[in-house]
């Protein structure tokens, strides 16, 4: 069994009553994600994928293709409309975990780095406090132990440790991203999900954040789902890649193969447009 097996993961958005045919009327071949019948937005649908232990899976696609919806469902931050996910550390459908199980799974098994920093960090807390929260939630009660672990994680993610007691709001975008990564890996999870880890950062900062994460990923052999609209990020990090469009997976394969020999027409244009 894989670390994570997702089948038919689907998410609708909208206050309308679904017409029952929303999925078949949307998707890549229709060129839309809003159901023409009932107006439901199909954020993503029928997504089937798997992640092996230690593997990095890339998810790439244009803006609005459903990457964050998928990532957040897999991180248990967003309720799924439909789908089944088997996850190593959980018996039953992972997507049906109740609140308490979810808190526990998120603390100790699946770390998430959010696209929007405010979803992942409390900006009024200190950077160190944000990372400490993960440890405290996991039951750490020895102050000096927490302190030491937070300092180690700051060093690991290359955030100046002398900034750890400053409010997170005073950090640069790159530092905030690093602190999110530090928090996500604090309890040695089996899976880390990165949603747009470089968006909004200076190009030079992007490269350093990616290098840092790639080193940690290799050292700790932690399975990772990395979501990006940037093919460069995917090419650098991902062993395998999933291409999404209008909420559907249009192509899956080894990253090198997808990049060099794209099969789906959309992937071809995507790659050509970058080159």
């Amino acid at each position: 069994m894989s670390l994570l097996d997702a089948e038919n993961v689907t998410r609708f958005y909208g206050d309308v009553e679904p017409c029952g045919r929303c999925v078949e009327r949307t998707g890549a071949e229709h060129g839309r994600n809003r159901c023409p019948e009932c107006g439901m937005v199909v954020g993503c649908a029928d997504v089937t994928l798997s992640v092996e232990s230690g593997e990095v899976l890339g998810i790439v696609g244009e803006s609005g293709s459903g990457k964050s919806s998928l990532a957040e469902m897999l991180a248990l931050d967003l309720a799924a409309t439909d789908g089944t996910v088997a996850f190593d550390a959980y018996d039953g459908n992972f997507l049906d975990a109740n609140y308490e199980e979810r808190v526990d799974l998120q603390n100790e098994h699946v770390g998430m780095v959010h696209q929007h920093v405010g979803d992942g960090l409390n900006l009024e807390f200190t950077g160190g406090g944000n990372v400490a929260e993960a440890l405290l939630a996991a039951g750490w009660r020895h102050f000096e132990d927490v302190r030491t672990r937070v300092r180690d994680l700051f060093e690991e993610t290359e955030v100046p440790a002398d900034r750890m007691d400053d409010p997170t709001s005073t950090y640069s975008g790159g530092m905030q991203r690093r602190v999110q990564i530090a928090k996500a890996i604090a309890n040695d999870p089996e899976l880390v999900i990165l949603d747009e880890p470089t968006t909004g950062l200076d190009v030079s900062v992007q490269a350093r954040v990616l290098d840092m994460f790639r080193r940690i990923q290799r050292e700790q052999d932690v399975a990772t789902i990395v979501v990006s609209h940037d093919l460069g990020v995917i090419r650098l990090l991902a062993d395998r890649t999933v291409v999404m469009r209008h909420g559907r997976v249009v192509e899956t394969g080894l990253t090198d193969r997808v990049m060099e020999d794209p099969r789906h027409e959309y992937t071809q244009t995507l790659i050509n447009s970058v080159i």
Partner: peptide, 17 residues
């Protein structure tokens, strides 16, 4: 849900200060 980690963070920051 007995989820008091935010309070613990406040306590942690209190000791830091």
């Amino acid at each position: 849900h007995k989820n008091y980690s935010k309070m613990w963070v406040a306590l942690y920051e209190n000791v830091v200060e």
